[in-house]
């Protein structure tokens, strides 16, 4: 491709693009003993080591990779043979050993926090999230209502929820509805 033929138009770009977060203007929302807010993931990239290259990837990144459904440092298990590196610098050299794909803008990341967070999620997520079974750092691919979900327990009463960016509005709607219904119980 003839990139060399492109002509630079001066030092400053001709247009300024403004960044917008997936759930901008929708959050935070608090009800009862729970708060829902948007998380800034920062740079996020999927890492899928090529065949037999997991060791090389771990060496290049200087850290071990998690087992299925677990987190190690900034690397969280994401899918079969796939990990998500959150807020991490990824050296270019890693591309030799793994498929690296920018995912920074693909996900709407929310945090659900509070004493009743588990109870709110019990309305939407069909897996066992009891503290004894789903501990801090545990993660799973599952569903949030009708939406795809990657969930991580980030604290005793805190969860990180990732779903499609385009579904941010529905995510907020579904979770806040569950929060409302739970809080309205007496």
């Amino acid at each position: 491709m003839g990139l060399s033929c492109m002509i630079r138009k001066g030092v400053r770009p001709v247009v300024e693009l403004l960044a917008k977060s997936p759930a901008e203007g929708l959050l935070p929302y608090a009800k009862g003993a729970v708060e829902l807010s948007e998380l800034a993931l920062g740079k996020a990239a999927s890492i899928a080591p090529f065949k037999g290259q997991l060791d090389a990837v771990e060496k290049a990144l200087g850290q071990g990779f998690p087992k299925v459904g677990r987190t190690t440092g900034h690397v969280v298990w994401f899918s079969q043979g796939q990990y998500l590196a959150i807020a991490m610098d990824i050296p270019d050299a890693l591309g030799k050993y793994a498929a690296i794909t920018d995912q920074s803008d693909a996900w709407c990341a929310l945090e659900l926090k509070g004493a009743a967070a588990e109870d709110v999620l019990a309305r939407l997520v069909p897996i066992d999230l009891r503290q004894s079974q789903f501990k801090r750092g545990h993660c799973a691919r599952t569903q949030l209502g009708h939406m795809p979900l990657h969930i991580t327990r980030t604290g005793n009463d805190a969860f990180r929820l990732l779903s499609f960016r385009s579904m941010a509005g529905t995510m907020v709607h579904e979770i806040s509805r569950a929060m409302d219904l739970l809080a309205a119980r007496r």
Binding site: M1, L3, C5, M6, I7, R8, K9, P13, V14, V15
Partner: peptide
């Protein structure tokens, strides 16, 4: 941020560009 023309970007070409 850089100009394109039919040589740098013919039909069915693709590539990285920069905007803003």
């Amino acid at each position: 941020d850089m100009l394109i023309d039919n040589d740098s970007f013919p039909f069915m070409a693709c590539g990285p560009v920069s905007v803003g």
